[in-house]
Design a protein around this nucleic acid. Structure first.
Lengths: 246, 246
DNA sequence: AACGTTATTGTCAGTTTGACGATAACTCTG
DNA sequence: CAGAGTTATCGTCAAACTGACAATAACGTT
């Protein structure tokens, strides 16, 4: 039996790092936010080869004493300049991409994470370019996916991230993580419309979601025309039965 | 900025493997099958320290030219002696475990995979112990989870695997991957009962699942009492609306 | 004060669910 | 070979849920 066919447990007992090609462990971030009725993703324009001047997901190296999720949080702060202490961000692991040739330089294993950034639905925080990036900004997700112009396998990762979010919104209240602590049902419906590229009926949406949320008792004031809307908060919860994507 | 805080892309440009601690990339397998009305998982008893004589998930090292999913398929064959060419097996990536101290010997990053082995629901193929294992066999999942006696973080991985399967069975027909190509509705219901630890009502289950499956036109023959049951096949499909777990 | 806009509630027909009974098609037993 | 026991499938019925609206109420603006 060759070393490769041994199990990892046995293998490790006689493992010498110098005998084997090094592996770089990284995280890539799919950072979503909603603005102007559209789902946006944070992308950086690469300053270096390969894929120089191409668009890529922000990401970075996992430190020796870190877990991937710790690295994801740290990179989110560093690479985009977002302050996690201030802004509430939801992060979860998405999937891991291990194809041996996904990076032409060496073997790079990337643990992709999905991050949901809370916003008011109008404006997004400016994001700063990280060390290797020429610039960074927010891009419309559905357009980017159709254009297929992301570096490395980041197009596939972005697609997986969107699928995860769209799916989870059917049976949980995650969509609320893209909104401020308190929000109206219309804001929440806007998130669904942005992610699903749909136009849900307001009345039915309210009837379905209302019981899943917590009414703060307060209402919006000074909206430009129209009745004031009730303000709700949400905790991550299962919707049962799910809200079906049309 | 320290090297660690650079993004991976920049980092790699000046990367020297010798400067950084090596990372072992492995796969762990959560192999499920149903027998005797219970959900079983394939486990090996460890022959070596650490966790000598403890129970662990089968797994192994990812080769230099392999992706994690390729390694998962190879290890499933090698570590358990199952012949994938013959037995139909469904494999999907589960999650990646990266805690720096999850293995006391060195940094081991493990990409866990979920594997569903088709069986007739009665007997399971004997599995052979891999190179590092004293023995290997099938264990009742729910009991193992309650006992919390798995090595490393394999208890958490097994729990995540079960949650993934249980959840996916609500809105897809994956459960059929634990059965032969052709199966009856009662067999399928047995899978649901085993995974969910429930007892679903036969009539309602039939009404709900029937339209999701393909009727072969054939029927079972020679069952020990009772009417013959129609034989169905399934392709991976969404169930809409989902079948709710009680 | 009238008007346009928006949030929320109400209505109603059609669908799905959960509980359970009825029927039909087998094997096994005496 | 005539029950008896089992099992698969279909039928029924009230309750819950959905999708498509209409109706009402509560604002800001003109």
């Amino acid at each position: 039996m060759t070393p490769e066919t041994n199990s990892a447990k046995k293998f490790l007992d006689s493992y010498d790092p110098r005998d084997y090609p090094a592996i770089a462990l990284t995280v890539d971030l799919v950072v979503f936010a909603v603005a102007g009725g559209m789902l946006k993703v944070a992308l950086v324009r690469r300053a270096e080869h390969p894929f120089k001047d191409g668009l890529a997901l922000p990401g970075g190296f996992v430190g020796a004493e870190e877990s991937a999720s710790q690295a994801a949080g740290r990179e989110l702060a560093e690479e985009t300049g977002l302050d996690l202490g201030r802004l509430p961000v939801h992060i979860e692991q998405l999937a891991t991409y291990t194809s041996p040739d996904r990076d032409p330089r060496m073997r790079v294993v990337s643990v992709a994470h999905l991050a949901l950034l809370a916003s008011n639905g109008i404006s997004l925080p400016r994001i700063a370019a990280g060390s290797d990036a020429a610039s960074a900004g927010w891009y419309a997700v559905h357009e980017i996916l159709r254009s297929k112009e992301l570096a490395f396998d980041h197009g596939a990762i972005l697609g997986d991230g969107l699928a995860r979010l769209a799916g989870k919104m059917e049976y949980t209240t995650v969509a609320a993580r893209l909104l401020p602590e308190e929000f109206t049902l219309t804001q929440l419906r806007t998130v669904y419309d942005a992610v699903w590229e749909t136009t849900l009926a307001a009345g039915n949406f309210t009837r379905k979601m209302m019981p899943q949320l917590t009414d703060t008792g307060r209402k919006t004031r000074g909206a430009a025309g129209g009745a004031p809307a009730a303000l709700f908060t949400a905790t991550d919860r299962h919707i049962h039965p799910p809200l079906a994507k049309p």
